[in-house]
Nucleic acid binder design. Structure first.
Lengths: 128, 128
DNA sequence: CTGTATCCTTAGAGATACTG
DNA sequence: CAGTATCTCTAAGGATACAG
């Protein structure tokens, strides 16, 4: 995929210049959204956490092909972006639970539409 | 951003293994959708082409910070993914027009929701 | 169990120059 | 006008080993 920095909220348009009467709306927050959920495993993790709390190991088991490093990293970013809440229990052995936040749940309608569109897309391409 | 191959429709789940009763739906086509529109400039280009045909140079002018190389590359991928139609006129000087396809227009509702969510996200983070 | 820390490979992306 | 062709840099992501 593209190189999308997690913390990059940079504008892709130079608003200072008269930008040839292009649609300034193009710089609407879709780009922000894509930046936030565009990570390779983000939507997958988010999906698993829909209305459900999971431990680190459970997530790992449910997403077998993700590495520990990536799981940790993506979770940290999601946490920083306030899409996931992380709760550490002071036990031994350690126990950490991940839950999706309100903000994340608000994403669901959009994800559902994307999911539906993805199906259409796959249908349109399955002939190849 | 994440590394998302344009042509990668690989499964991120190992369906052969009993995957710890994880939600198989997690591997729903959201991931496909993200792969297709996750490119750094894709949604921006798509937005500019909403219900409107533009020439290469017009796109370049409207998205000043994109390089020619990236514009060409992203357009080629969108074309391959059947989201954009490319029409070349046999004139001199050359003239090439880009139009969004039906499939691309079907994405709009999802993009609108993402846009709305992006605004919420920005609000929730502006305090920082 | 839930992580770090390293090392490594690649793909994404920018800059620049050139062309039919 | 609408692109290629190179070159380079960086960051995303994977593999593996180690640790509280």
């Amino acid at each position: 995929m593209a190189k999308i920095k997690a913390s990059s909220h940079e504008k892709n348009f130079d608003e200072s210049e008269h930008n040839a009467q292009g649609r300034d709306m193009a710089n609407c927050p879709v780009t922000t959204a894509i930046n936030v959920i565009g990570g390779k495993w983000k939507v997958i993790i988010l999906y698993q956490l829909r209305g459900q709390t999971l431990r680190f190991g459970e997530l790992k088991r449910v997403i077998p092909k993700i590495t520990q490093k990536m799981l940790t990293q993506q979770l940290r970013e999601l946490e920083k972006d306030k899409l996931v809440k992380r709760v550490v229990y002071a036990e031994v052995p350690p126990k950490v639970e991940y839950t999706s936040t309100e903000l994340a749940e608000k994403l669901n309608p959009a994800l559902d539409l994307l999911c539906a569109w993805g199906s259409e897309y796959e249908k349109a391409h399955q002939s190849e």
